[in-house]
Design a protein around this nucleic acid. Sequence first.
DNA 1: GACAGGTCACGAAGGTCA
DNA 2: TGACCTTCGTGACCTGTC
Lengths: 211, 211
Amino acid sequence: MTTMTNTILNNEYWNNISVNQSFDFDDLFSSAFNFVLPMKNENTEILLLSSENDHKYSQTLPTNNTTEESQQPSLICGVCGAPAFGYNFDQITCESCKAFFRRNALRYMPDLKCRYSSSCIINVNTRRQCTYCRLKKCFDIKMRKDWIRTEEEKQLRQLIKLTKEQKKINDLSNDQQSLINFSQVLRKKKRLIIKSTNQEFVPKLVNINNH
Amino acid sequence: MTTMTNTILNNEYWNNISVNQSFDFDDLFSSAFNFVLPMKNENTEILLLSSENDHKYSQTLPTNNTTEESQQPSLICGVCGAPAFGYNFDQITCESCKAFFRRNALRYMPDLKCRYSSSCIINVNTRRQCTYCRLKKCFDIKMRKDWIRTEEEKQLRQLIKLTKEQKKINDLSNDQQSLINFSQVLRKKKRLIIKSTNQEFVPKLVNINNH
DNA sequence: GACAGGTCACGAAGGTCA
DNA sequence: TGACCTTCGTGACCTGTC
């Protein structure tokens, strides 16, 4: 097994990935040129790779000046180039890549494997085809896996939520106490009415009672 | 003249293939995946695949605007012409050709042999008669054998699944039934690892096992 | 409003058995 | 072999919180 493979298999490696710290196989093709990389497939398939997209990471495209109907600037996903609507895990991505990153970023990397040479082009049409390279690109554009809530954080939030609910129930109990107080008040009122039966201001009291 | 060209000329069924479809493997990933790929539906539909059309991912466009009665696009298998219900290994095929391809695509081609001139017509009725030509047609329409899961991938998935189950059971812990399940899972895992003993990814499996 | 997570229908893999 | 089934990753849409 090569050193590179070992490196990639090491989970720690993925914690520290950055754009500048490229993979070995990326270094091989690190020029800004477009190039053709032959794939392993015996059927002589080739995969056209382009680093063009690299310049588009997290790019905010200017809105069409002629049409001002959309106030939202048209963003594109830094991973696949699909329309994006904001930041997710610190980078501008589409909903799909956001969900993908949330699901996969904490996975044990060796579970994933590229069928080709770990440098697949990721775009809207190809993003589903290589989990490894898609995730690699997520890390390349510096999406932050430490922003994904851990199981502990989730449990903590759950606990906080439950505590709040508990408090609400307590408050509700207080309301019930109020209700008791209220009926006591009501009884008091009735007693007052009965007591006042023979007096001329009764209608007024009944009226009040009905309200 | 190339073998491929001969093949194309000899196969009558090519008449069914739409004009724009190229059979040159080199075209497989033409123009960095920006392309219009005509599907093999002879009736009214084309499938637009273009990363430029951001909101038209894999959209099925009915060419006949007047008829909207069929919600399900009527697809036909690119191999045999039978009704199809979606993509399999990157091409629209029927269930039967999908299973056929899964079973045979990884076979060593020279083991197969056409009794005739390697240019049999493949349709619903004849598809069973020549494995070689059927498989050849699968490759001709660019079904992708590299999308078939390898034995290694299958075992890895199996192992990941078992590990997850094990974790779940671990979390439940105290339950006696869980304990039984746990040992069952453990046995399965051991069997799987033993089964994989002679394969190069064993260290990885063991590694995962330890996680 | 922005951005986390959650949900669920769906597509496309593999598995099964007559 | 192929019809039918199961499984699982995906992504559009939703909810919750700050």
